[in-house]
Design a protein around this nucleic acid. Sequence first.
RNA 1: GGCCCUAUCGUCUAAGGGUUUAGGACGUGGCCCUCUCAAGGCCAAAAUACGGGUUCGAAUCCCGUUAGGGCUACCA
Length: 482
Amino acid sequence: MTDQVRVRFAPSPTGYLHVGGLRTALYNYLFAKHHGGKFVLRIEDTDQARKVEGAIENLISTLEWAGIRYDEGPNREGAHGPYIQSERLAIYREHADRLVERGKAYLCFCTPERLEEVRQHQIKAKLNPAYDRHCRDLPLDEAERRQAQGERHVIRMKVPITGDMRFHDLIRGDVTISYDVLDDQVLVKSDGFPTYHLAVVVDDHLMEISHIIRGEEWLPSVPKHILLFQYFGWDVPKLAHLPLLLNPDRSKLSKRQGDVAVEDYRTKGYLKEAIVNFIALLGWNPGDEREIFTLDELIKEFSLERVGKAGAVFNVEKLNWLNFEHLRKKPDAEVLVMLKEHLDRSAVSKRFEDEYLLNVIRAMRERVTFVKDFVEKSPYFFRSPGEYESDVVKKRWQQETPARIRKLAEEFSRLRNPQKEDYEAALHRTAESLKINQRDLVHPVRLAVSGMGAGPGLYDILFILGKEETIRRMNSAIERLI
RNA sequence: GGCCCUAUCGUCUAAGGGUUUAGGACGUGGCCCUCUCAAGGCCAAAAUACGGGUUCGAAUCCCGUUAGGGCUACCA
């Protein structure tokens, strides 16, 4: 075993990448990169019943989208492949046989019916349901004879009857679990596939994993794994069990209470930078008061020592804020690309010049959380107002307003190639000659050209829209608003 | 039920026994700025689950209680 840090993310391909899974992947990745080590992606598809078509591809593309690049894994073979467990069946079988030979595991011929019956009896007798070790002491020759006859069987590990397992977890400290709450775990199922417990130990060893960083739900099965490492005569990797991600009601993060698939958030328009940043902060903090991080900064700062022990609620409000912050940090040109992509996908059919869109971006930057907000919060940059917000009309559009707007439109029409300041000066002049406050013109004009009462500075809007469009909208408002 | 883990503002968290009138952030409310809305600035409300110990001193260490979560499969 080398001294190099090698960690893995080992999801089972059951459909989509869960945000909890993404965080586990992220922490592994950050830990690996922080220490100049390798990040391995391994697919744990040993349950044939739960196989989902396309899940692996989906998992990989989501991971790559988030910027979490694996060094070894499916489609990126290293020296430890294959990285999909269903392609490693012979390896597991061979190792299981080794354990049987050494008397550390045994063949079990109990039927599911008998197991269920035993379980029912135990429950009735208020005992902990566990395998009764019926086949544990079958003579090896008898077991081999029955196996040769093709009798259906599983392979179970032998867990010591008494004593306990004490181990150290990098996040939780020392943990002790008594053997009498463990049963003789199935290692190889009757379909020949290994269970998680066998596969994870064999693969973590063979792939030279130095640190196992995974969710807290695995903590109770650590003793089984350590036992297996010992039965094989292998070193045990360092362990770190991450706190869980929680629903707002503090139960384990699940569907039903909001979105849990990373792609859901992606579709909603969250930036990968925001999701990664947010998820990193769910259970980890840098120790100072910084909150905005890029992936590279996270790599630099991350340490397991600063990972907390308590579960963390996935709080969308803060994610929104981070999205806002990361979107704001992006250069105009980059936002332009995203806005154009969004426009292509949306119902807005009209084409806009890059320069026009850049102006919209500059005007709206401080006002949007998502790229889609450019259109949703300022639709007037993309089409003339279909209707006017009624409460704003009520407040800003008085009886004398049409005449004033008409006069201002005339003033505007005399401008040649107007800049922002020219609109402002023209409005100022008009207000003076009308002997009214500027705001008595500003608000109605805003309403006329945008249909709304809120938005960027009026002169920014007018400049972006351009003289012709501005005047056209002003006249249109005069006709449509009474 | 049994076993394991966890417990600081609504949420994410800081404080590694004295530097603490428990700090920051999101969100919430107010004020300032201002053509509106934002952004920004300032301010405010808001927490150590409870009970015992240990100690000169406890959010911090120990025990118990309570609460929450996880696990308890031929699922991962």
